[in-house]
Amino acid sequence: MDDLTPVPAEPADATAVRALVRRAYAPYVPRMGQEPVPMNADYERAIEDGDVYLVREGGELVALVVTREEGDHLLVENIAVAPGWQGRGIGTGILAWAEATATSLRYDEVRLYTHETMVENIAFYRRHGFEITRVAAEDEFRRVHLRKVCTTR
């Protein structure tokens, strides 16, 4: 595999970003009874804001991460790995990148959230040192909020 470090997305990537997110999140729609928020996000705007980073292998978009600086922490809004690339350590690499990015921005923690029915994601984050901080109903979604204190300082 090539270097799988996320790099900033360009405006021309918006269509591919949206397509990857839709494929990655499609299995959750029946479980949730609705489309997860990332499936309908404004990726043009997020790319314009500098919040979207891509992972490519051999020129193919295989994963992405959307982050946002939130005052006292780095928020990971979305991690999506193309279905054919899941289980190869890309998500783990993205989490390590997010922690290193948070540290470089002088934040002490990374936060994220996921829908409570995405139990595989919750288990994945917990295996990588994230702790659940709360479960809350927000809009029409039940979200599990997690955080990880940066250890790379």
Rank of each mutant, 00 (worst) to 15 (best):
D49W: 05
G84L: 00
P30E: 07
E99M: 00
V65Q: 09
A9F: 00
A16L: 12
I122P: 04
E57K: 07
L20R: 08
D2V: 11
A123L: 07
V135M: 11
L20S: 08
E35N: 09
R22N: 10
R31C: 03
M39E: 07
R88L: 11
G87H: 05
E57V: 00
E140M: 09
D72I: 02
V135C: 11
M32F: 01
V144A: 06
T117G: 04
I122M: 02
W85Y: 15
E116Q: 13
G91A: 12
G71Y: 03
E60F: 06
G84I: 03
A19D: 15
T103R: 15
D2A: 14
T151M: 07
D72L: 01
H115C: 01
V65T: 15
R142F: 08
T114P: 11
L54C: 07
N40F: 07
V119G: 00
V81D: 07
A137W: 03
H73W: 02
E70N: 13
V110E: 00
G33S: 07
E109I: 01
V135P: 07
T15G: 13
L146S: 06
A123K: 09
T152Q: 13
T114S: 12
F130D: 09
L20P: 13
F130K: 04
E10H: 14
D108L: 09
T103S: 12
T114N: 10
T5I: 12
P6L: 00
V7Q: 15
H128S: 05
A41M: 08
Y28L: 14
A80V: 05
V135Q: 15
M39C: 08
T114C: 10
D72V: 10
G84F: 02
S104K: 11
